[in-house]
Computed example of a mutant assay.
Amino acid sequence: MGARPIAQEGPPRTRTERDLRAERAAALARRGAVALAADSGIDHLVCACGSERYGIPLAAVAQVLPSRPCTPMPGAVPALDGLIALSGRIVGVLSLARALGRPDPGSDGETASGHLIVLRGTQPQPLALSVERVLGIARAAASGAAASDVADPDGLGNAAASVYAPASDAGSAGDGRPDFVVIDLPRLLRRALP
């Protein structure tokens, strides 16, 4: 008994057609890998306080507004600039620089310069952070440990400033210097608001 050749249906495929399909499959696989790598970081709103750059997780940001004068609160914690009315709610405004123990770039409750970053999910009291300026959005490259699991890994001297993060896409923070310090908001708020 001899082996019978298998009959092929239709015209035989040329090597060129097979090569083309293999190249397409490889290109699609590469595109999927690039998309997966792009999704491996966390977007942060990068802002400046003096010469320092800080990143606030974008998921925690509800709104960014131009700064406005605050009503001061006598006897309040040092980081609290005061209160503002926003959409029918009273919102506490914290100076990010003072909350981090950094030199305040000269903001006080009477002047309105810079930006306010209204935070999401700070109940029962809505909160905003006052910063010198908002620079843009940058994606922090993913790391092996979550920022909340690392307490001051680089000796920054401030547990609320949790990780120094090089952004994954150059220039995204506004002027070609995308590196910033990631802020651990729960730690910052526990420290600034006893």
Score class of each variant (00 low, 15 high):
4 R>I: 03
8 Q>A: 14
9 E>G: 00
10 G>N: 09
22 A>T: 13
22 A>E: 11
29 A>Y: 08
29 A>E: 12
31 R>N: 07
32 G>L: 07
36 L>M: 12
37 A>Q: 10
39 D>A: 11
39 D>E: 11
41 G>S: 01
49 C>I: 07
52 E>R: 08
52 E>Y: 11
52 E>I: 00
59 A>H: 11
59 A>E: 14
61 V>N: 12
63 Q>R: 10
66 P>S: 07
73 M>K: 04
76 A>F: 04
78 P>T: 15
78 P>V: 10
82 G>T: 09
86 L>D: 13
86 L>R: 05
88 G>D: 02
92 G>H: 10
92 G>E: 01
95 S>G: 14
96 L>I: 02
98 R>A: 09
98 R>D: 08
100 L>R: 00
103 P>S: 09
104 D>H: 05
108 D>G: 14
108 D>I: 02
110 E>A: 00
111 T>G: 11
111 T>K: 12
118 V>R: 00
127 L>R: 04
135 L>E: 06
137 I>C: 04
143 S>C: 08
145 A>M: 00
156 L>T: 13
157 G>K: 04
160 A>Y: 06
161 A>D: 01
162 S>T: 13
163 V>I: 03
163 V>W: 05
167 A>W: 08
168 S>I: 02
169 D>L: 15
171 G>D: 12
173 A>C: 09
174 G>I: 04
174 G>V: 06
174 G>N: 13
174 G>R: 02
176 G>A: 01
178 P>R: 05
182 V>Y: 01
182 V>W: 02
184 D>V: 14
185 L>Y: 12
188 L>G: 09
191 R>H: 15
191 R>V: 03
191 R>Y: 11
